[in-house]
Computed example of a mutant assay.
Amino acid sequence: MENLKVVVVGAGMGGLTSAIAMQRAGYEVEIYDRVKELRPAGAGISLWSNGVKVLNRLGLGPEISRIGGPMKQMAYYAKSGKLLTRFSLSPLIEEVGQPPYPVSRTDLQMMLLKAVGEENVQLNKRCVAVEQTADGATAIFEDGHKAIADIVVGADGTHSIIRTHVLGHPSERRYVGYVNWNGLVPASEDLAPLDSWDIYVGNGQRASVMPVGSDRFYFFFDVPLPKGTEREPNRFKQELSKHFEGWAEPVQNLIQQLDPDKTNRVEIHDIEPLEALVKGRVALIGDAAHSTSPDLGQGGCQAMEDAWALANCLLTTNLSVEDALMRYEASRKERVAGIVLGARKRSNMTHAKEPEKTEQWYAELAQEDGKKIMDAISRTILAGPMG
């Protein structure tokens, strides 16, 4: 279809990628976000090859390779520091045809913003409702502004207003069961090799670093905790030192090197797979469509796949906008449901929901040569629309 006008609500990773894909398709695009200043949630993201392929297809390959980190190997350690397994990611890269690029969320957002044109993003616009007619859809904002278009894309995140319109009812967020601290630190050999994703595991907890651009590590800590524990940055180091007492020296070094004021502390939630991703001329993408825990590293990649699939469906059918959106839903619904449930299953194993399964996983890691881990990552990547 030609000459469409698209309104994208949400200027995060999914919204901006969707806007770029729509622009590349030749559509008129308006982008709105509720915030006064764009600040990405979280410090870094493990952008696997399926997400990178979407960016390549949109002409952003050189940019993402420049800001992404050189992740060439992966290792698991016991909390004591005993090496369980270390392996090169070269077989995975050869299998899927593209290196992964762990990246700072700020760098990624700035790259996408530059590509879409910052002048095309209108901030301080909180969407409060969506209306539809037979030949259009309208996003209505708190300040009274109405954005009328052929299509409204709901990229308004895990607390999505537009999701409620699509489903006809609110969605309950579900606490997955653990708290995640994350941030950026200068890359250094006393934490990990500069080209490696290193993960320390024990007690249902994790401590990890992976390389991102500009000689930095993206780090995270996971600890199973009750919902509602307090977030006090001035106590982050003390809190983490207690949870990771006796763990290996690189973990202790990481705790001392992190900047509490630039560290995020998040209670991890997901949402049950949705019964619908579209309604008429309104489509959901990203966290609005599939709010998942980060345990498969696929949240951002799935948002990018959504963006590509939605634009592609609009370009390759001429029956109607509604038909194109139904085809988008059919292409994505099972895929993203599998990611949400797969991440939840992995989270349960990683974070000792059933301790005996977690201990079995630790034992298996000690016998792992990398093939089983890379095969699982490869299957997830190759099941997407970019192959």
Rank of each mutant, 00 (worst) to 15 (best):
E2L: 03
M13C: 12
T17H: 01
M22I: 12
Q23E: 14
G26D: 13
V29E: 12
V29Q: 12
Y32H: 14
A41M: 15
S49Y: 05
K53L: 11
V54Q: 06
N56R: 15
I64W: 07
S65H: 08
K72L: 14
Q73W: 08
A75P: 07
Y76L: 05
L84A: 09
T85P: 03
R86V: 02
S88Y: 04
S90F: 07
L92A: 00
I93R: 01
I93T: 13
E94H: 11
P99C: 02
P102K: 00
V103E: 02
T106H: 10
T106Y: 10
M110G: 05
L112N: 08
L113P: 04
K114N: 11
E119F: 11
V121N: 09
K125E: 10
K125R: 13
C127R: 01
V128R: 11
V128M: 10
V128W: 11
V130H: 03
D135S: 07
D135W: 00
G136E: 02
A139L: 05
I140A: 03
F141M: 05
G144T: 01
A147R: 02
V152H: 04
V152Q: 03
V153N: 06
A155Q: 09
D156T: 04
I161W: 02
R174C: 03
R174Q: 13
P186A: 11
S188I: 08
L194H: 06
S196E: 15
W197K: 11
W197I: 09
W197C: 14
D198L: 09
N203C: 10
N203M: 14
Q205N: 14
Q205T: 12
R206Q: 15
M210F: 13
V212I: 15
G213Q: 13
S214Y: 14
S214M: 15
F220I: 12
D222N: 13
V223E: 10
L225N: 03
L225F: 01
P226C: 05
P226E: 14
K227C: 03
T229D: 10
P233L: 02
N234S: 14
K237D: 06
K237H: 01
Q238D: 14
Q238F: 09
G246A: 11
E249H: 13
Q252I: 13
L254E: 09
I255S: 04
Q257F: 10
D259A: 00
D259C: 00
N264F: 13
R265K: 14
R265Y: 10
H269C: 06
E275H: 03
E275Q: 03
A276R: 08
A276C: 00
R281S: 09
I285T: 11
D287W: 08
D287I: 06
A288F: 06
A288M: 05
H290P: 05
G300V: 03
Q302D: 09
A303Y: 01
M304D: 00
E305P: 01
D306C: 00
A311V: 07
N312R: 05
L315R: 15
D323E: 15
L325M: 13
K333Q: 12
I339P: 03
V340L: 08
A343N: 04
A343G: 08
R346E: 14
A352F: 12
P355C: 07
P355Y: 10
P355K: 11
T358V: 00
T358M: 06
A363E: 15
A366E: 15
E368V: 08
G370Q: 12
G370D: 12
K372E: 12
I381T: 07
L382R: 10
A383I: 00
M386D: 00
M386S: 00
G387F: 04
G387K: 14
